[in-house]
Design a protein around this nucleic acid. Sequence first.
DNA 1: CTGGATAATCTCGGCTATCAAGATACTCGG
DNA 2: CCGAGTATCTTGATAGCCGAGATTATCCAG
Lengths: 171, 171
Amino acid sequence: MYRRRDTRREQLVAEITNNLRRYAVDAQQVGHAFANLHGLNPTDLQALIAVMDAELLGDPITPGRLGEQLNLSSGSVTALIDRLERAGHIRRDRDTVDRRKVLLHYADQGAALAMQFFQPLGARTDTVMARFGEDELEVVHRFMAEMSESLRGHRDAVRAARPESPRRPTG
Amino acid sequence: MYRRRDTRREQLVAEITNNLRRYAVDAQQVGHAFANLHGLNPTDLQALIAVMDAELLGDPITPGRLGEQLNLSSGSVTALIDRLERAGHIRRDRDTVDRRKVLLHYADQGAALAMQFFQPLGARTDTVMARFGEDELEVVHRFMAEMSESLRGHRDAVRAARPESPRRPTG
DNA sequence: CTGGATAATCTCGGCTATCAAGATACTCGG
DNA sequence: CCGAGTATCTTGATAGCCGAGATTATCCAG
């Protein structure tokens, strides 16, 4: 996080790292603040976005997969979906093929909220990007794609790790 | 979030936006997973990082300012600091000038944990950056700096908004 | 010294997450 | 068709975190 900056290159690496970290922290706080503003909690917002994401890709998410994405237990996911459904943000549908499964779809209220979340953010993002040439955006794109993939690998590694001193003996 | 991609430029903008969003989500999940792994919760980890950050910049943070950063009430901050202190991650010091104030310093245990958090991440980050030339990193740096600043502005705007009466006169 | 403001802590209630057990539906062998 | 085994989701009980308001200690103005 704080490293020596002997050369210009090292300085750049250090500052970019710091900016990425701050960006992540700030993004989290945006989510927190926005959720509070609308009577949700951060988990609910994350879930709502995940539901929209999956559905817009044509592959509605199930409670099980949602729990994997958010790292929640199955019981917590049920409670989470109950809250979101009660608030009118999403709705449950049984899968017609495998009726054990529940497919989650966003409702109008949820879509409106997600739009409200992304639009102002997108506007700011576009404003910044307008100050960059297409060739520059190519570089940024390559960078972000690789960085994003790298972070996902890191996340999976951390998740795969097991606690050093478990509360309960292995059993 | 999902926009048309008529031109190459619009495609780039769309994909970069998606990557930024995914990066933020994944970063949050890394924090979540890492915190779980070490018996903390995400807030604790955020606080620990904030404490280190402030102290390394030579300006130790107080509970009050920590609460502002994390958007927590004063009572929650006290409980948070109690947990971190009990776990040996940080310690309290009274300010000698204004003895109402408490200054937070990280303890060895906290520093070790933060290192454990950032080192593997930094290694991956460096690997990615090694694949970019110095001129390319200049572009990325400019981009991230502006994007980071823009997001901070957005965060403050969302925080400034009020839940029930968004257009409340004064106070 | 008195009164008001600021900083942190304490106490209590609500809400969320985890864990364990249960209910329903699918799969497969006989 | 029938039953055992498995997968998916839900329910109920418990623990821990967060927010709001009251309380204590300190600073500052006069």
